[in-house]
Amino acid sequence: MDLTLKIWRQASSKVKGQFVNYQVQNISAEASFLEMLDILNESLVAKGEEPVAFDHDCREGICGACSLYINGRPHGPDRGITTCQMHMRNFKHGETIIIEPWRAKPFPVIKDLMVDRSSFDEIIQAGGFVSVRTGGIPDANSIPIPRRNAELAMDAAACIGCGACVAACKNASAMLFVSAKVSQFALLPQGRIEAQERVQRMVAKMDELGFGNCTNTYACEAECPKEISVSNIARMNREFLSAKLISHKEF
């Protein structure tokens, strides 16, 4: 198929960006979306032009590196997948596809379609862990965990940290991302010990970094490539409220 691509080009975070139109021809329906961008880039390089910069790595939907709004939707039109898992059979011959970087204040553009998501790492560093050291740990089976809780924890832990939830939210809220980590640990006995402190630290960091609040539109869940449930946000709100009620410390 032949396509027109309207791609956001921006040399660096310091200069203004703009849309630039490109044409690609004879794209196979079996190619992935990023392979289609590879083809465009190889043709640009051959002409001596600068290729379009975009983040990507595993190309199997697990590393969380790829991003992109495709026709206004994070990770494109299909549900439950990342951009790298999107195949060109989702598009039609002659179509114009608009490709943009994530747009959210805490995710500044680095170049073209690449954004800086280090704010997510900062939130995890504020409390997204269990404070155990290496070694000296009792046997793994010494604390049985109800299967249901283990499964719910796994559902939340499936988050790949891509930032689609923030990109989808009109408030640029990171509540789905933060609540997924809070929930994973809140559901497991190993994580309960620090649960109150954790949720307060992570929420405080999230606010400090400029992420917005949640107004229950559920756009995050709809666009999440791992279909993380908004019920995690409800769980985080419960955790946060109860922690605030009995907390000894201010965060």
């Binding site: 862990f129 269990v130 155990v132 290496t134 070694g135 740990i137 009792p138 046997d139 793994a140 604390i143 283990a150 499964e151 924890a153 796994m154 832990a157 994973q184 640990f185 497991l188 190993q190 994580g191």
Partner: peptide, 11 residues
């Protein structure tokens, strides 16, 4: 043991 203590949700 280490991974379970870290909160890795094994099956």
């Amino acid at each position: 043991d280490q991974c379970v203590a870290q909160g890795v949700p094994f099956a």
